[in-house]
Amino acid sequence: MALATVANIAAALTATVPADWESAASVVGVIVLVVVAAVALGVSASGGWRIAPVLSIAWGLGWLAVARLLGDLIDVPIGITAIIVAVIVLIVPIVGRFMRERTLAD
């Protein structure tokens, strides 16, 4: 739900900000996606590297990537960043959980 809120706010700002701000839209979008990654990893880490929260965020990031790479509002840097962030928020908790279980077994 947080990712949908961020995407909706970004879309609203894209439609309402002055045209001269358009050049900063990709940079701001990438920064927001980095923050989304940090929040997702924080939620997963605080829950013992649970996978479910990051699965939903990765799914949303996947759709965001599709929308930015193939949709009406094409923005390649945001689309590629969304893919990278989706992969990161999936891999880090999987590795974290594996390491946690390995440590507990020792």
Score class of each variant (00 low, 15 high):
residue 1 M to H: 06
residue 1 M to N: 07
residue 1 M to I: 08
residue 2 A to L: 15
residue 3 L to T: 10
residue 4 A to Y: 13
residue 5 T to G: 14
residue 5 T to A: 14
residue 5 T to P: 10
residue 6 V to Q: 07
residue 8 N to C: 11
residue 9 I to V: 12
residue 14 T to F: 14
residue 15 A to F: 03
residue 15 A to V: 00
residue 18 P to F: 14
residue 18 P to T: 14
residue 19 A to F: 13
residue 19 A to K: 12
residue 19 A to V: 15
residue 20 D to H: 09
residue 20 D to Q: 09
residue 20 D to W: 07
residue 21 W to M: 14
residue 21 W to L: 15
residue 23 S to D: 11
residue 24 A to R: 05
residue 24 A to M: 05
residue 25 A to K: 11
residue 26 S to Y: 08
residue 29 G to N: 00
residue 31 I to G: 09
residue 32 V to N: 05
residue 33 L to D: 05
residue 35 V to H: 11
residue 36 V to L: 01
residue 36 V to F: 05
residue 38 A to C: 13
residue 40 A to L: 05
residue 41 L to V: 01
residue 44 S to M: 04
residue 44 S to R: 03
residue 45 A to P: 04
residue 45 A to F: 09
residue 47 G to I: 07
residue 50 R to C: 09
residue 50 R to I: 08
residue 50 R to N: 11
residue 51 I to V: 13
residue 51 I to D: 08
residue 52 A to V: 15
residue 52 A to D: 13
residue 52 A to T: 13
residue 53 P to W: 01
residue 55 L to Y: 08
residue 58 A to E: 02
residue 58 A to T: 03
residue 59 W to L: 12
residue 60 G to S: 04
residue 62 G to I: 02
residue 62 G to F: 03
residue 63 W to H: 14
residue 64 L to Q: 03
residue 64 L to S: 06
residue 65 A to K: 02
residue 65 A to T: 03
residue 65 A to I: 00
residue 67 A to W: 05
residue 67 A to G: 07
residue 70 L to D: 09
residue 73 L to Y: 15
residue 74 I to C: 04
residue 74 I to P: 04
residue 75 D to C: 00
residue 75 D to F: 04
residue 75 D to S: 06
residue 79 G to N: 00
residue 79 G to D: 01
residue 81 T to H: 02
residue 81 T to R: 00
residue 83 I to K: 00
residue 86 A to K: 03
residue 86 A to T: 03
residue 86 A to S: 03
residue 87 V to I: 08
residue 88 I to D: 08
residue 90 L to Y: 05
residue 92 V to E: 03
residue 92 V to W: 07
residue 92 V to M: 04
residue 93 P to N: 04
residue 93 P to V: 04
residue 94 I to S: 10
residue 95 V to L: 08
residue 98 F to D: 10
residue 98 F to A: 13
residue 98 F to E: 09
residue 98 F to P: 05
residue 99 M to W: 14
residue 99 M to E: 14
residue 100 R to C: 06
residue 104 L to D: 10
residue 104 L to H: 08
residue 105 A to F: 09
residue 105 A to R: 12
residue 106 D to L: 15
residue 106 D to Y: 13
